[in-house]
Amino acid sequence: MEKNIRLAIAPIGWTNDDMPELGGEIPFEQCVSEMALAGFEGSEVGNKYPRDPEVLNKALKLRGLTICNAWFSSFLTTKPLKEVERDFVQQCDFLYAVGARVIGAAEQGNSIQGKPLPIFDAKPRFTKDEWKRVTEGLNHLGAIAKQKGMRLVYHHHMGTGVQTTEEIDRFMEMTDPDLVGLLYDTGHLVFSGEDHLAVLKKYLKRIWHVHLKNVRFDVVERAKREKWSFLQAVRNGAFTVPGDGGLDFAPVFEILKNAGYKGWWVVEAEQDPALANPLEYAIKARQYIREKAGI
C-alpha cells in the first residue's frame, strides 16, 4: 500500500516566492540538495528553479529528485478564459517535461493572500457569476490537462474564494469529478477553522494531491485577534512542518493509506528560514512521516 505514496517537499521553506526576502539568499542548488539529503524524492517548483526543462532535469537527476507539481494562478474571475488557457497550457507543457503529472491551480482574480488586509475580515466571496466562471473555466482547463495525461487539482487557500468547507463543497459540486480534483491542504483547512478530517473523508476519491502543513495554534489565534494579513501570519510562524506544531497527522495518514491513496504527499510549510532552518525542519518532517505513517 505504502509504495503508492511518494514523498516530496516544497521549496517554500527555503525561499518564499511571495516574500522573497525570506530566504532570498539561499540558492536553488542548496535547496534541492537539502531536500535529497533529508530523504525526499520529489519537489514542487519555486521561482528560483531553472525554467529550461533540460537544465532542471539534470539538476534533479543528480540528486534523485523529480518534480511533482507546481502552483498555477488562475485569473478566471478577472481575465478572458483564452488568456488563462494560454498560460495554463504553457505551465502544463513545462511541468510535463520535468516529470510532473499534476498541476495545482488556485483562483487569484480576487485573492487577498498577498495583500496587506486582515485575512479573515477581508476574505473574498465569489458572486454567482464568479462561481460560474471559476468552475466552468476549471472544467475546461481540467479537460486540457487530461488530454495531456495530467490531472488538474484545485488548491483551497486562505484569503481566496475557496477556503471554507462550505465553499469547498460548492466548488466540488460545480466541477466535473473526472476533470477536477482537490489538492488537500491540512494547514489551510485548520487555519481557516475547518474540520480537516471531515473534508478528507468526504472527498477521498477526488483528492489527487496532498499538502502536509502543520499550524501553530497560538499564532493563528493571534492572527485573528490582531487582524493580521496572511503574509503577516506566515512571517510570524503560523505554519510549520508535520512533527512540529499543534496538529496530529496520524489520523490523516491512516485515512489516506486505508483508502489506497496513490500519489504525492508534499511537506509544505512556509516559514522564515532564518528562524526555522530548512534542512533541520525537512529532516524533522521526514522522520515524523516515517514514524507515524511507516513510509
Rank of each mutant, 00 (worst) to 15 (best):
L60Q: 05
K61H: 11
L62T: 12
R63V: 15
R63H: 12
G64M: 12
L65I: 10
T66S: 13
T66E: 09
I67Y: 01
C68D: 02
C68W: 01
N69T: 01
N69E: 07
A70W: 08
S73I: 07
S73A: 15
S74T: 15
L76W: 06
L76H: 04
L76G: 00
T78R: 02
L81Y: 13
L81C: 08
E83K: 08
E83V: 15
E85D: 06
R86K: 11
R86D: 07
D87G: 09
D87A: 04
F88S: 01
F88I: 07
V89Q: 03
Q90D: 05
C92D: 03
D93A: 10
F94M: 00
V98K: 02
V98D: 00
V98I: 08
A100P: 04
R101H: 07
V102Q: 02
I103V: 03
G104E: 04
A105P: 09
A106P: 02
E107M: 10
G109C: 11
G109N: 08
G109Y: 05
S111L: 13
I112Y: 09
G114C: 14
K115E: 14
P116Y: 03
L117G: 02
P118F: 07
D121A: 15
A122Q: 12
K123N: 12
P124E: 01
R125E: 14
R125Y: 10
R125Q: 14
R125N: 12
F126Y: 15
K128C: 09
D129Y: 04
E130D: 15
E130C: 11
E130W: 06
E130Y: 06
E130V: 13
E130F: 06
K132T: 13
R133Y: 10
R133S: 06
V134L: 00
V134M: 03
V134T: 06
V134P: 02
G137I: 09
G137N: 06
H140L: 13
H140E: 11
L141Y: 02
L141F: 04
G142E: 02
G142T: 01
I144D: 01
A145E: 00
K146E: 09
K146L: 08
Q147Y: 05
K148G: 06
K148P: 02
G149L: 10
G149Q: 08
M150I: 02
M150N: 05
R151C: 07
R151G: 01
L152V: 14
Y154P: 06
M158Q: 14
G159A: 11
G159C: 13
T160S: 15
T160W: 13
T160M: 14
G161T: 05
V162S: 11
V162T: 12
Q163I: 11
Q163T: 14
Q163M: 15
T164L: 14
T164V: 12
E166D: 11
R170K: 13
M172W: 09
E173F: 11
E173I: 15
E173M: 12
E173T: 14
M174K: 13
M174P: 09
T175N: 11
D176P: 00
P177R: 08
P177W: 14
D178P: 04
D178R: 09
L179H: 07
V180E: 00
G181A: 06
D185C: 12
D185F: 09
T186P: 05
T186K: 02
T186W: 00
V190E: 04
F191R: 07
S192A: 15
D195W: 00
D195T: 14
